[in-house]
């Protein structure tokens, strides 16, 4: 299995403001009644994007000037709440390839990483400057340099934090760990026996 080395993400962006944007908001639970992840992109942020009749509401994702954005920007604790991988799956299927926020909920962060979606942490000030720029010049091309932990947009350039485990995994194309995990078959079997409780009847 050869995975893409996620070293740089380039694209336009959209800002969905707010702290504590939870995964229920990213993909409401009723759309999880499914046995595959297909089609989830359509329901991304559904209840904040659509009214009860399915018409567009006032939401950044509905603004034509942000159409085609592949980088999502938000604030603190993005992706909190439910562990549902349906949330990053919906983001990916909608077209997002990276998220910039002040902080991320951990399960969401891990789920994104396992799909090769970098979640990069920026300061509140950097996000403010960036979102001010894109509100004026929405077509600004953003570049997220995973290797050097840096974001460039127009004249703006700022450092971001990408935890080292995720960074290594993304830049080396090892973000899906399954093969590496499987390699340890023998040590796992040894530990299973040693710990005892797994084999207790």
């Amino acid at each position: 299995m050869s995975l893409e080395k996620v070293r740089k993400i380039n694209g336009r962006s959209v800002y969905v403001p707010g702290n504590d944007i939870d995964t229920d908001r990213i993909i409401p639970a009723r759309f999880m009644k499914c046995i595959t992840f297909d089609g989830l992109g359509e329901y991304l942020f559904y209840d904040v994007r659509k009214d009860l009749d399915g018409n567009d509401k006032n939401h950044p994702l509905n603004e034509p000037r942000y159409f085609g954005a592949s980088v999502l920007i938000s604030n603190a604790n993005f992706g909190c709440g439910s562990s549902r991988e349906h949330a990053p799956q919906a983001l990916y299927r909608y077209g997002f390839r990276a998220v910039i926020a002040e902080s991320f909920a951990e399960i969401f962060f891990g789920n994104c990483c396992a799909l090769g979606i970098p979640c990069v942490v920026a300061t509140q000030e950097s996000i403010k400057s960036l979102t001010e720029l894109i509100s004026v010049v929405p077509e600004t091309e953003i570049s997220i340099d995973v290797v050097n932990s840096e974001v460039c947009a127009g004249d703006l350039k700022f450092a971001v934090n990408i935890p080292s485990g995720a960074k290594e995994a993304l830049m080396n194309g090892k973000w899906d760990p399954i093969e590496e995990l499987q390699e340890a078959e023998e040590p796992i079997a040894h530990l299973v026996t040693e710990l005892g409780y797994l084999k207790r009847s």
Binding site: E85, G165, L181
Partner: peptide, 21 residues
């Protein structure tokens, strides 16, 4: 005890392990 995503559910089913910081 902690929550995991679906890809990690696969990892546990396949190997009884996950990668975690």
């Amino acid at each position: 005890a902690f929550g995991i995503g679906t890809t990690q559910v696969r990892d546990v089913l396949a190997t009884q392990t996950i990668a975690l910081g």
